[in-house]
Every structure is written in structure tokens, then in C-alpha cells.
Amino acid sequence: MDDYPMLNLFWTMLVFFLWIMWLFLLFKIITDIFRSHELGGWAKAGWLILVLILPFLGVLLYLIFRGPAMAEHDIKDAQDRERAFRSYVRDAANSPDAGTGGPGTRSSHADDLAKLSDLKDRGALTDEEYQRAKAKLLA
């Protein structure tokens, strides 16, 4: 260990960490280029060539010029996933088969109510949706 001092080890770890972070950023930018609907084909090709040919400069320029759009894409994707999840939960809670594992395997009302309560506690169901599903179960 004498031929590789502790400070050199720390420096190597720092450089390696920064390199890995830069790779993550590069992949994030490349995926953002392809999912961006406001960029045309030539603009996407131009950004991709810039990012791949001059990686450090390309990444910095992309962050400067397209950084706010990247954040908007992330927010929109998160909202779309949340909307799809809520729709799935709503459909599952309101379906006539809710709580059944198949023909003839009806679970108890207590289990169904516990599942609904859990969904409401996690914020997947609104109070109105919870009350409607609960009334349907108890009817």
C-alpha cells in the first residue's frame, strides 16, 4: 500500500465516481432526445451527433439549451404514470369481479375492505372513490 498513497486512492475514487455520474447524465440526455416530441428528426440527429462526437461540450450545451424541457418531460411522464395507475385502481375497484381470484374463489368482504382501506391510505383512491367502492362491496 506504500506505493499508492491514500490521497491517490481517494482521487481515483472521485474521478471514477464523476465518470459514472457523467455516463448516467449522457444516457439521460440521449433518452430525452428520443422522447422529445417538439424536436424534429434533423434536430434529434444533430443533438445526438453533438452529444456523441463532442460528449462533454454536447452534454453541457444540451443542459443549457434543453434543460427546462427535460424537467417538463420528466414531470409529464410521472403524471402519465400516476394517471394510468389511478385509472387501473379505479377500474379494479369498480369492476364486478373486484375481490375475486377467479370463478368460485370469492374473498371475504373483510379482505376487500382492508384492501380498499389500504389503497385509500396510500392515496391511490380519493375519499369519494373509497366510499363508492365500499358501498358497492357492502350492498
Rank of each mutant, 00 (worst) to 15 (best):
M1A: 15
M1K: 09
M1T: 12
Y4R: 04
Y4A: 04
M6Q: 13
L7R: 08
L7I: 09
N8P: 00
L9G: 06
F10G: 06
M13G: 11
M13V: 11
F16Q: 05
F17G: 09
I20H: 12
W22S: 10
F24W: 14
F24D: 05
F27V: 06
F27A: 10
I30S: 06
T31G: 13
T31I: 04
I33A: 03
R35I: 08
R35G: 04
R35E: 05
S36N: 13
S36L: 07
H37N: 14
H37T: 13
G41H: 09
G41F: 15
W42A: 14
W42F: 13
A43P: 00
K44H: 04
G46F: 09
I49S: 04
L50T: 13
L50I: 10
L52I: 11
I53K: 08
L54P: 01
F56A: 09
G58N: 04
G58W: 06
V59L: 14
L60A: 13
L60H: 06
L61M: 09
Y62W: 04
Y62T: 03
I64C: 05
F65S: 04
F65E: 00
R66F: 13
G67S: 03
G67Q: 05
A69C: 00
M70Y: 03
M70D: 02
E72S: 13
E72T: 10
E72V: 12
D74I: 08
I75T: 14
A78M: 10
Q79F: 15
Q79N: 14
Q79S: 11
Q79G: 00
D80M: 15
A84Y: 05
F85N: 01
F85P: 00
S87R: 13
V89A: 02
R90D: 04
S95R: 07
D97N: 12
D97T: 10
A98R: 01
T100A: 07
G102V: 03
P103G: 12
P103A: 15
P103E: 10
S108H: 08
H109K: 15
H109R: 12
A110F: 08
A110R: 14
D112G: 11
K115H: 07
L116Y: 01
D118A: 13
D118I: 07
D118R: 11
D118G: 07
D118S: 14
K120T: 00
D121T: 07
R122L: 11
R122E: 07
G123V: 03
A124R: 05
L125V: 07
E129I: 03
E129W: 05
Y130E: 00
Q131V: 10
Q131G: 03
R132I: 11
R132S: 10
R132Y: 10
A133K: 02
K134Y: 08
K134C: 05
A135E: 15
K136R: 15
L137D: 02
L138F: 05
